[in-house]
């Protein structure tokens, strides 16, 4: 009896050890400053980045894909390295700083927000798509602070998609990155309108 129990425990141990731990893959993209060095000019506008909210199925670490018009797959083995809202927050911050915008996460802003902007992005869709590649939909809101009140300065809905260059999750991540880059370009233009002079 004891031998049987011992064998059972050993068998369970071996089965546990034999599991394929390498099957999980983790991804992350960042809008690094390699190709666009930080501009040294005096920052013209200060922007506080509020939370980036992700609504719906994409609000999790697993990668999400539309496999059909009405069907979603939540990946079992392919994950973002961190929660996508944290990743997008970092990407936004990096991009705006690279664009010469004085961007600070709102949590570190302090009390004096006078005359400055707060950026809030709400993402509705952040998923792979069986025909469109990667889709990114949502709204962004830019508020201006004045005497402890904030007023909506501008806002816009966005709906972006980017086809994959190749098959595979790496391409999907790259397409997501391109989508976010496009979104950031639109927002930074709104904050710092191009000087046509």
């Amino acid at each position: 009896m004891r031998l049987t129990a011992l064998l059972g425990v050993v068998a369970i141990f071996l089965v546990g050890c034999s599991s394929n731990v390498d099957s999980h893959k983790y991804y992350k993209f960042s809008l690094s400053s390699e190709n666009s060095p930080v501009k040294t000019s005096e920052p013209s506008q200060r922007v506080y980045i509020d939370t980036i909210s992700i609504l719906g199925a994409a609000n999790q670490q697993a990668l999400v894909q539309y496999t059909d018009e009405n069907q979603i797959n939540i990946a079992n083995f392919h994950y973002w390295a961190e929660h996508p809202k944290n990743m997008l927050m970092q990407a936004t911050h990096t991009y705006l700083v690279n664009e010469g915008i004085y961007a600070i996460p709102l949590a570190y802003a302090g009390d004096d927000l006078e005359q400055h902007f707060t950026l809030k992005i709400v993402v509705h869709e952040f998923a792979g798509h069986f025909t469109k590649g990667a889709v990114l939909k949502g709204n962004w809101y830019l508020y201006q602070h004045h005497k402890r009140n904030k007023t909506l300065h501008s806002s816009s809905a966005f709906s972006l998609s980017n086809s994959l260059v190749d098959d595979g999750f790496e391409s999907l991540v790259a397409a997501h990155k391109n989508n976010w880059l496009l979104l950031m370009q639109g927002i930074s233009q709104q904050i710092n309108p191009p000087n046509h002079e």
């Binding site: 599991s19 394929n20 079992n76 590649g133 086809s163 098959d167 595979g168 999750f169």
Partner: peptide, 13 residues
């Protein structure tokens, strides 16, 4: 071992 089905590979457009 986790025997969930393989994730569908994202395809080119």
């Amino acid at each position: 071992d986790k025997n969930s089905g393989e994730d569908p590979i994202p395809r080119k457009g």
